[in-house]
Structures are given as C-alpha cells and as structure tokens.
Design a protein around this nucleic acid. Structure first.
Lengths: 345, 345
DNA sequence: TTGAAAGCGCTAACAA
DNA sequence: TTGTTAGCGCTTTCAA
C-alpha cells in the first residue's frame, strides 16, 4: 500500500498510522488503548509515529465504537446568583485541567429551573455525556434522570435529600458557625446576618450555622437583623439598609459572601457609621480583593482548587465503577484582618 | 418490524424513530437535517415522535458522517493574569448560551505559552473542533495552525500582526484615552498609570491611549509614575507604593482594571493619603462591586455580553463560509462616581 | 417520495 | 503476535 501524502487539511487516521508503521490497524488500535497483543518493537515504532504526528484518533469514531462521548458536562443553575456563578467559574477553571489531561472535553452548560429547559435532559437522554458535575441547586428530576440513565455524576453541595448521590460538600454550616463564634469571642453579642434565600440550601446551611452559634452563646438576634434577600451587591446593600432601620442595631454582621460584605460595609458607611468601630463585618470567601478593601475584610476562605479536585476525583471514581462516596471539605481557619472590632480581647 | 421496547439505559437511534414512525431511516435523517424529500404528513409525524422522545441523533455518529465534532473551543492563555481570566470567564458565560442553542458544545481550554503544551495543537491537527474562540495572547503558531487546517476561528483582542484574522476588538486604547482625558478635564495635570506588561498587547493599547492623552494636553508624566508590573491585586499595590516613593506625586492614577484600582487605592490610604482628596483614581471594567467601594470607583464599563455576542457571530459567519471581518467594539461612556477629585469644574 | 446500502474511523472479536 | 472484518449510528447516493 502507498503511504498517503499530506492533504494538509485532512486529519490522519489510524489507517495512515498503520501504513506508516507497516502494521495493521488493529495493532495501532491496541497501542492507542494500552492493550496487550503487540510486540515491543512494533509497539515502540507505533508510539513513535503517533507522537511524531501528534496523532489522536478521531473522537467521533472512537466514541461510536466505545459508546462514549468524551464530554463531561458541568451544569450550572441559570438562576444562580452572579456571585455564585463567579465562584462556580472559578471552580470550573480548576476542573479544566483535571479533565483535559484525561482527554475529555469539559462542557459547561446552564440549566434553568424552568421545566421547559430540556437541553441537559436531552443530553442525558441521548447519552451525549460521559459524566456530569452538577453545581448546587440543579432540579432534582434532572439529577434523577442522570441516575436512571446510569450516567456518572456528582453534586457539588447537594440538598439534604440527595444523600445517596456522590457529592462534595463545602461545610458552609460550620464556616458560618465559626465566623459567628469569632464575633462572639471578640465580645459581640448583637449580631446580624445577611444571606441568600434564593439559594435555599446554601441559605439553610449558613443560617443553621449562625443560629447554632447564637444558641450556644445564648444571644438573641432580632428578627430584623436576619436578612435573606441578598443575592448580589445591590440587594445586599438593601439588606444592610433594612438592618440599619432597627431601633437597636447589631454591633456585627455575618455576611455569607465577601461580595455582600462589600456593599453592606458601604451601606453602613454611607449611613454615617464607621467600620469596624460602630459596626463590624465578617464573611465567607476570601476574594483576592478582600485584603485590599477598606477595611480589609476578615473572612473565612473557600478553596476552589480543593473543591474542583474532590469533585473530579469523585466523578472519575464513579466513571471507573469504584464505590461512590461523599466528601465534606472541612472549614478553613478564619483570616483575621480589620473588619471586626475587638470589644474584648 | 417490532417496536423496540425500552431498555432504559440505551439511547434511541434513528432506526428506532424510523420504526416508530413506520418509515425508513433516510426519511428521519432528512427531517433531522431539514432537507426536502419527505412528504408533509410523514415529516410531521416524524417530528412529533422526535420531540416526544427528546430524540437527538448520536453526535459521534453524526459527526463521523459529517466530519464535524460539534465542539467549539474557547482557548484561554494559561499565563493570563487572574483578573483577565475572570473577565474571560464572564465572557464565556455569555457565550455558553449562544453556542448551546446551536447544538454545539463549548469547550473551554487552557493553552500555555510553553511550546511543550501540545493539547490544543493536537485538537486542531486532528480536527476535533469545529471552531475556535481565541482569547487574547494565544501563541501565533497555534492560531496559524488553525488557519492552515481551515478551522474557523476568531481572536478576541488580537495582536496587530493578526489583522487578517477575523477578530473582535475592545477599544482599550480609546477607553484609556477617555479616562485620562477625563482626569485632564477635571483639572489633573500630574497623572500616573498602572498597567499590565504581562499582557503585552493590552499593555500597549492602554499605554498608547494614555500617552496620546498626555501628549494632547502637553502633560509630562514622570517615568516612575508609569508602572507595568501589575498583574493582580498584590502587584498593583506594589506599583502604587513605588509611585508613592516619587518626590513629586501625581494627583491622579489611571488603572487599566478595577482590581488594580482597589489595591492601589488601598496602598494610597495605607500610606496616609486620602482618596480622592489627595490622589484620584479612575479605571476600566466597572465590576459589580465598583459602585460599593470606598470611594465608589469612577470607571469605564466593558460589556461582556456584547463581546461574547460579536465573537460568536463572527465565528458562526466564518463557519458558514461568509466573508470574514473584524469588529471593534466602541468605548462606552465613563461612569462617574467619587474616586476622582474635581480640581476644576 | 421512499428504501437499500456504502462509507465515515475506530474497536474488538475472530481467524490465521 | 498479527491481520481481517463486522459493527457502532448516521448521512447520502443511488435505485426503485
């Protein structure tokens, strides 16, 4: 047979490689898939030619044979708050490398709460994905469908009812507890809370952590100090304004995200309060900026890299048929900066 | 023929649909691909069955026949500054919808400056992509390879030598010019600049805009006021500190990104200067937070949605064989807040 | 307008 | 250990 001369725009095929190496396509296929059945010299020769040409087998063809898509979908709730999406994309960024090096495509996609949004459903139904990373809050029926169709999947911060699904959990309850505890230890007794009801699970976790701390110290938070309407900078500002309308003000506020703290601090300052002298703030995230705000924000960091790593590991284990399990990522230490006034050393 | 009963985990095939509709696979295929050659009643029946089952043809198989991958890659420079990556992911987020609704997967991927990173090259070489969105600063050889292999591609903020590649340009030169002009109009004559050399094109564009404004007003900026070492919050702080070491200080600073402004403002305050009383700041981006910083940041907004839309439109036009062209997105109006002191009304 | 069948590039079962 | 080939699900040509 003749060796095909370079039509520059046509990709090589396994057949071309076989011709170049003077072997059959089967041998090349075996080498590609790391199977035995090829002699060492042949194997080496084939490997050399493959890497020389940067040859990669056609994924459509390979996928067709293997019933694989080589896609891993990262599904994000469309209605998630901008701040959350930002966080998710940070995690996605870390996932990209972990997934790429396994020769998968990572495909980020939005899924709406609206049942009319069938996009991901049809991806699942038609087996156009090999694994799914669900970010928090995806509709249960979608997750169930993935289970029914035997598509490996993991949930990042699942709801409580989703305990039988492999998942990785950031311990937001614990983080919020620690943060509230920190305020208490610094002598604050009147503490407010700005959270995000529109992410119900996240809201419950953070509020639970907060409430637990309040109970432990026997503090009674005024109901009006506990706000849930925040979902971006603007609404967090509104929350803070509402708190400031109370007759008795809290001396410190727990924000469930740095973003909220930024505009809450702003609202307090605008109303003439000094931060942290009159009102202290503490939050969760540790954005790169947090250190440079005025005042520098005391906050508990969340490690996106770790989250991405755990989620991918879980997914790969699932895909390889290993036992599914859950991971809870423990809360980190608070990074103490200057947004909390120390009332008692 | 019998209608196949539901093996729940196996996806439907075009054959199943054909059986259900009592027609041949060809007819189904014609309907899927919007071709003529099928009678109206048949067509309607087939369409009904397809939508009823949420049927989507197997992409591997389809791709194999059509020589398509259904992937559109979004290539991001791995070495890009964190602030830039954030911006890119914001744009990616907008692209997701535009691309998904065309039944493509969007596949974000990093490409390193290091020639050893062959990942995207091999994707291109092996035609495992139908189109590429290159974000600023991707190695020229990669872009050229896409051209050689006839893979449609667009560059977001290309280098000057890449003028023959379809591209969408944010007019950073103009934005920086406007921002510097604004300072001049408010009576500032000693103006500094904090930019990012590590993104060479972006740096040149912004610095050119700045320089042009300086020339127009015949201002002479001290060389030490012009910094290029910023690439994140930390290094921007360093830049500002260095500026503050000058004997004569500028009264205003142009930052090429809001992030830089945040930590530059912080550096100034920490050194005992009041903002904007002693030193003013202006920047580019308009992050959601910008409004809530202390002081609220005067900045010129960049529209991610528009950028995503233009880039995708260009790419789709290219993919459909339409004439390639470039788009320059004009600079928006400055959003005036409180970080610039008005020295002259 | 419809159906049959070749071919896309690969895997893997089977034959040699 | 190697080569041959059926088959994966679809598109599309060709024949009916």
């Amino acid at each position: 047979m003749e060796i095909k001369k370079g039509d520059k725009t046509k990709a090589l095929t396994i057949k071309d490689i076989a011709n170049l190496a003077g072997v059959s396509v089967a041998s090349v296929s075996y080498v590609i898939n790391g199977k035995k059945g090829v002699g060492p010299e042949q194997r080496e020769k084939i490997e050399r030619i493959i890497s020389w040409h940067h040859f990669r087998p056609n994924q459509n063809s390979r996928g067709l044979s293997l019933s694989k898509s080589f896609n891993i979908h990262a599904v994000i709730r469309r209605e998630a708050a901008p701040a959350c999406k930002n966080f998710y994309f940070g995690v996605l960024s870390k996932m990209m490398d972990l997934i790429e090096c396994r020769q998968y495509n990572i495909v980020p996609a939005y899924q709406s709460d609206d049942p009319a949004d069938k996009n991901i459903m049809s991806v699942i139904q038609n087996k156009n994905t090999d694994g799914i990373l669900f970010f928090q809050g995806i509709r249960k029926d979608i997750v169930k469908m993935a289970a029914n169709k035997k598509i490996p999947h993991v949930i990042i911060n699942p709801g409580l009812e989703e305990n039988n699904v492999p998942s990785v959990l950031l311990d937001f309850e614990r983080m919020t507890f620690q943060v509230a505890q920190f305020l208490a230890e610094k002598g604050h007794t009147r503490i407010g809370f700005i959270g995000m009801q529109s992410m119900p699970l996240f809201f419950r976790q953070t509020l639970d952590g907060f409430t637990k701390a309040m109970r432990q110290y026997r503090f009674r938070a005024d109901k009006a100090w506990i706000r849930g309407e925040a979902f971006n900078e603007e609404s967090a500002e509104t929350s803070m304004r509402r708190i400031l309308r109370c007759k008795v003000l809290p001396t410190a506020i727990v924000c469930t995200q740095d973003n909220f703290a930024v505009s809450a601090v702003n609202a307090a300052k605008t109303a003439g309060y000094r931060v942290p002298r009159d009102i202290s703030f503490i939050s969760i995230d540790d954005l790169p900026m947090a250190k440079y705000l005025d005042p520098p924000l005391t906050t508990i960091p969340v490690d996106q890299t770790e989250l991405a790593f755990c989620a991918c590991e879980l997914l790969f284990d699932f895909m390889e048929g290993k036992a599914v399990r859950n991971i809870t990522i423990p809360a980190k230490e608070i990074i103490v900066r200057d947004s909390v006034r120390i009332l008692k050393p």
